[in-house]
């Protein structure tokens, strides 16, 4: 499979990258780890005339602890997330999710920025960002904008990112110490997207659930934030009745398509099981 020809650019700075995108318009695509874009190019489903490789831009790399949260450069790889002791200590769901993405080779290349900006409902990190209430920074010719992850996803491959903008940074608020979280994913094999997956981040206070965020992967056009599922847990002791209600609320917003992973009813059912397991795991981990 040979992709269509393109001109290759490797800018050394973010400003240069933004200029290249302005210059070439919809002919240009940025490439981060490349493991979503290059397969599409090999199938000629994507045929950019200009490929802007972000690998030399130092400003897009690194994990910064800001006290209240983390600022993660978009070019940070899944492997670097797995290896960051600081991230894992404060926000273990990032490592748990990254370890379930694709396979070792792909985790060396695949980036957090690519995963969240691509808009593929099969990508795992968008659901994590919804659960954590992350904010994305996007830089374009007019400057930098802040975009809430919970408002970012419009439909499959369609996001609030405008033509000419580059997603540069992922800002994650630290969940309170003692929170419990889990990302539970059903997949047919290594390297497959989820049949369904669920992320849960919750806090407990005096035996009652004080806050809860629930989100879903690959059972809709985008990752889904299940606000009603979270609300069903808050105030409860995470008893069976509350969990049943949350599962029902989450499954209620799932709209998976029938595909090789199974028929619609099956995938909804799996989504429910994932939500239940994620709540139970997060509850066990919460203090």
């Amino acid at each position: 499979m040979i992709p269509a020809a393109f001109d290759y650019h490797r800018p050394a700075s973010l400003d240069d990258a933004v200029k290249l995108l302005a210059q070439y318009g919809d002919e240009a695509r940025v490439v981060a780890g490349g493991h979503s874009l290059i397969p599409m190019m090999k199938l000629r489903l994507a045929q950019p005339g200009h490929l802007v490789d972000l690998q030399d831009i130092a400003a897009l790399k690194g994990i910064k602890d800001t006290g209240a949260g983390f600022e993660i450069g978009a070019m940070t790889t899944q492997r670097e997330i797995i290896q960051s002791a600081a991230l894992t200590a404060a926000c273990p769901i990032l490592k748990e999710a990254a370890e379930q993405i694709a396979d070792p080779q792909i985790r060396y290349c695949g980036t957090l920025g690519g995963n969240v900006a691509n808009g593929d409902p099969g990508n795992d990190m968008p659901a994590i960002m919804l659960a954590l209430d992350a904010v994305y920074l996007a830089k374009g010719p007019a400057g930098t904008r802040e975009l809430k992850a919970r408002d970012f996803y419009e439909s499959a491959y369609a996001t609030k990112l405008k033509e000419g903008e580059i997603l540069t940074t992922i800002r994650i608020p630290k969940p309170p110490a003692g929170h419990g979280s889990a990302y539970v994913k059903q997949k047919r094999k290594i390297g497959d997207y989820a049949t369904a997956a669920a992320a849960v981040v919750l806090t407990m206070s005096g035996g009652k659930c004080a806050s809860a965020a629930v989100s879903l992967t690959n059972v809709g056009d985008t990752a889904l934030f299940a606000a009603a599922a979270g609300a069903a847990l808050v105030g409860s002791s995470l008893d069976q009745a509350a969990i049943d209600k949350a599962v029902q609320a989450a499954v209620g917003i799932a709209q998976p398509s029938k595909d090789t992973r199974g028929p619609v009813d099956f995938r909804k059912s799996v989504a429910g099981v994932m939500v239940r397991r994620a709540i139970e795991a997060a509850a066990k981990r919460a203090r």
Binding site: Y8, V31, P39, L51
Partner: peptide
């Protein structure tokens, strides 16, 4: 497989295992 699944094309690139069917030569420059 030529689709970044099988790993038969794995090489070491700057200390990382990568599937060389999913890397452009330009990126490896």
């Amino acid at each position: 497989c030529d689709t970044s699944h099988c790993g038969a094309c794995t090489v070491d690139l700057d200390g990382k295992s990568v599937k060389s069917c999913t890397v452009f030569v330009a990126q490896a420059n």
